[in-house]
Computed example of a mutant assay.
Amino acid sequence: MQFGIFTVGDVTRDPTTGTTPTERERIRAMVRYARHAEEVGLDVFSTGEHHNPPFVPSSPTTLLGHIAGLTDRIVLSTSTTLITTNDPVKIAEDFAMLQHLAGPERVDLMLGRGNTGPVYPWFGQDPADSVALTVENYQLLRRLWDSDVVDWKGRFRSPLQGFTSTPRPVDGVAPFVWHGSIRTPEVAEIAAYFGDGFFANNIFWPPSHYTRLINLYRQRFEHYGHGPAAHATVGLGGQFFMRPNSQDAWDEFRPYFDEAPVYGHGPTMEDFTERTPLTVGSPQQVIDRTLTFREHFGDYQRQLFLVDHAGLPEKTVLEQLDLLGGILPELRAGFEALRPAGVPSDPPTHAERVARQAARPEPVAV
Rank of each mutant, 00 (worst) to 15 (best):
E330R: 11
F198Y: 11
L144F: 07
A37Q: 08
G281N: 03
F240G: 00
E295K: 14
E252A: 15
L291E: 09
E222F: 12
N245I: 14
W250F: 10
D308A: 15
N52F: 12
T84D: 09
P118Q: 14
T71A: 02
P15S: 06
T20C: 07
F253Y: 04
R155S: 15
Y138N: 02
T7A: 07
D87C: 09
T16K: 01
H100E: 14
S208P: 05
G311E: 01
H36W: 02
S77I: 01
V354G: 06
F194P: 04
N52G: 11
R32K: 11
Q357Y: 07
P88G: 11
A34D: 07
V343K: 08
R142I: 15
H209D: 10
T81E: 01
H350W: 10
G266H: 03
D271E: 04
F293T: 09
F305M: 00
Q285L: 08
F176T: 04
V31I: 15
V286R: 06
G298V: 13
V317D: 04
E295V: 09
L321N: 08
S158V: 12
M30W: 05
E38I: 05
E39G: 00
A358G: 10
V173I: 13
K315A: 15
R254T: 12
L278D: 01
F45I: 02
V286H: 03
R73I: 07
R32Y: 05
M242K: 03
E330P: 12
L338F: 07
K153W: 09
A365Q: 14
V366S: 14
S79L: 02
P54K: 11
V131W: 03
A128T: 10
P228T: 04
D72N: 12
I182Y: 07
R289E: 14
Q357D: 08
L98R: 00
A249F: 13
G326E: 15
D129E: 03
A351E: 11
G197C: 15
E39H: 05
Y300N: 03
V177A: 10
F293D: 09
E362P: 10
P344F: 13
V280M: 00
P340C: 11
A188S: 13
E38P: 04
S59M: 14
S147H: 14
P348Q: 07
F297V: 06
Y120W: 03
P313W: 08
T164Q: 12
Y138P: 02
W145P: 12
A351Q: 11
Y193A: 14
Q219M: 11
L76K: 00
I214N: 12
S147P: 06
F95D: 01
G195Q: 04
I67W: 00
A128H: 06
A351F: 03
Q139A: 13
D72H: 09
T19K: 15
T290R: 00
A96K: 02
